[in-house]
Design a protein around this nucleic acid. Sequence first.
DNA 1: GACTCCATGTAATTTGTTACATGATTGG
DNA 2: CCAATCATGTAACAAATTACATGGAGTC
Lengths: 183, 183
Amino acid sequence: MILLEYILLGMLMEGTMSGYDLKKTIDSTVGTFYKASYGSLYPALKRLADKGMVTLTETDNSKNKKLYTLLPSGRIAFLEWLSGPMQSGRNEQLIRIFFFDYLDEDLRQKRLAEYLFKLDQEIHMLEAVQSVVAGELADIENPENYYYRVSVLAYGLNHFQMERQWLRDIMERKDLNHVKPEN
Amino acid sequence: MILLEYILLGMLMEGTMSGYDLKKTIDSTVGTFYKASYGSLYPALKRLADKGMVTLTETDNSKNKKLYTLLPSGRIAFLEWLSGPMQSGRNEQLIRIFFFDYLDEDLRQKRLAEYLFKLDQEIHMLEAVQSVVAGELADIENPENYYYRVSVLAYGLNHFQMERQWLRDIMERKDLNHVKPEN
DNA sequence: GACTCCATGTAATTTGTTACATGATTGG
DNA sequence: CCAATCATGTAACAAATTACATGGAGTC
């Protein structure tokens, strides 16, 4: 089971969809972190069907459109993946959080706390690196020749700090609607 | 020529290194955005050697250590890649900026401005999506059941805004050393 | 009639990961 | 002497991208 398969199962939790619609849904939700091409999506759907996790219904309205529906086995596999500990790649965590509305509050808070812990570790590591680099730069004659190298370190730190703040906000279930629909 | 090959050439701009040291250097600099495993690194170095972009020198100090040195052809290929327009994957941009100390100021500002433009576009798109979603949420009975889905949208926006601020800072060549080595 | 969107899929090629295999050197 | 780090590489496997191939439906 690869990540895409879990994403497909998760999207099908909302209801029956075609492969085409699944791609559009993925693009418009987690598209910023995850790209799904048809070349990977259709084979993944086929694998899920082979495993008995989804059924496909051929619609007879003159197109060869196929609708995919989640089966109990697929639902179980999805929820098991969703409940698992924070461990895998960065993007996978984000995608899992996207589906956290399906997870109960206890486990949710536990997983988010684990993530926060990991983030703190990474921030401390990067701060240590930055500290070392700052020391090295002080010793050389032309530190301005390393401006962009150093800036990329700063980028990493900014990124993790942003992520940390965001995590803290959602752990408190803060209101995210600072956005007013333009009038 | 794949991304890793350009990264290797770029790292060799600083001087001769072994494959092992190249991996360590990559991990400790652009490691946050790019992972290089030996299974991809050594074959990449071999390809670069076959293309005549690097030479390998066997050191005879009783190890089978090999040192790689950048050749003029490799330097040209690297600088050409570095000069190219902003187009490819997100991470590739960041890695290029890491090497921007090797680019002249005119081209540098041009590329950074292109990147900023692209970022603004993405921010506008995400804001539009968020606006649509906010409207949809207002119409449904239980909007709190979509909290995490919405939070991931907010994450994307936060990310791009952070990136935008960072870009503006380095375009002005602001001082990035807000960091004091701990005392 | 042309263009865009809907809709599905395959195949070649490229690419990367993982595990394996080997062995020297250094520091405690 | 034992563990960690240095050091290089291959092979099997898994995976994704890209291009290709096809065709219906709606709309300007």
